[in-house]
């Protein structure tokens, strides 16, 4: 049975190395300051007593006042899981650091979150839309995205990327 680290256990582990970055300790998760997300993830991955070698899932939730990015981590060697969260306030340019340098598995998931929710992942090697096309107006999973006029949506263009 995968042992889910409680919020308190994970917060204690994080506070050992990042004393001031825990914002809130929940029952199953820890909310950390967004500036420290990448460093904390590096630490959680590299620290031998935690060894969170795999990032299961990255996604975000629109709570209107802020966006909450949720990381589900799992340690294959210890069969432990943990949930890390970070909050990005504002609707104009919510951002969190990208964790692609830590886990390559975040690549497409962060692009999807950017595409559908408009959370910018700072430092992502190529943060482009992935499911919708370049030029699509807005980010459809946001709560204030209600409808769009099909006649005015620009047609799909060739994705940029390869040369």
């Amino acid at each position: 049975m995968t042992r889910a680290l409680t919020g308190a256990e994970l917060a204690e582990a994080i506070q050992r190395s990042f004393p001031s970055s825990v914002v809130e300790t929940q029952r199953e998760a820890v909310v950390v300051a967004r500036e420290a997300v990448r460093d904390i993830c590096f630490y959680l991955k590299e620290s031998p007593e935690l060894d969170f070698s795999m990032l299961t899932s990255v996604t975000a939730v629109d709570y209107v006042d802020y966006f909450e990015v949720v990381y589900h981590l799992v340690s294959l060697s210890r069969n432990q899981s943990a949930i890390l969260k970070a909050r990005a306030p504002g609707r104009a340019d919510p951002w969190v650091p990208s964790v692609v340098p830590v886990w390559q598995g975040a690549d497409f998931q962060e692009r999807e979150t950017w595409d559908l929710l408009g959370v910018r992942f700072d430092g992502h090697p190529s943060l482009r839309r992935i499911l919708l096309w370049d030029g699509f107006p807005g980010h459809p999973l946001r709560k204030d995205f209600l409808e769009f006029d099909h006649r005015t949506v620009p047609a799909a263009t060739e994705p940029q990327g390869l040369s």
């Binding site: 995968t2 070698s53 990032l55 299961t56 294959l76 069969n79 899981s81 886990w103 598995g105 998931q109």
Partner: peptide, 24 residues
């Protein structure tokens, strides 16, 4: 592991990780 592969794709690479066993 680093690219979050799961299922037969991960297990073919020699990682015995199956949710049915790991987290029944």
């Amino acid at each position: 592991i680093n690219a979050s592969a799961t299922g037969p794709t991960l297990r073919a690479s020699g990682v015995p990780w199956d949710i049915r066993k790991a987290d029944p």
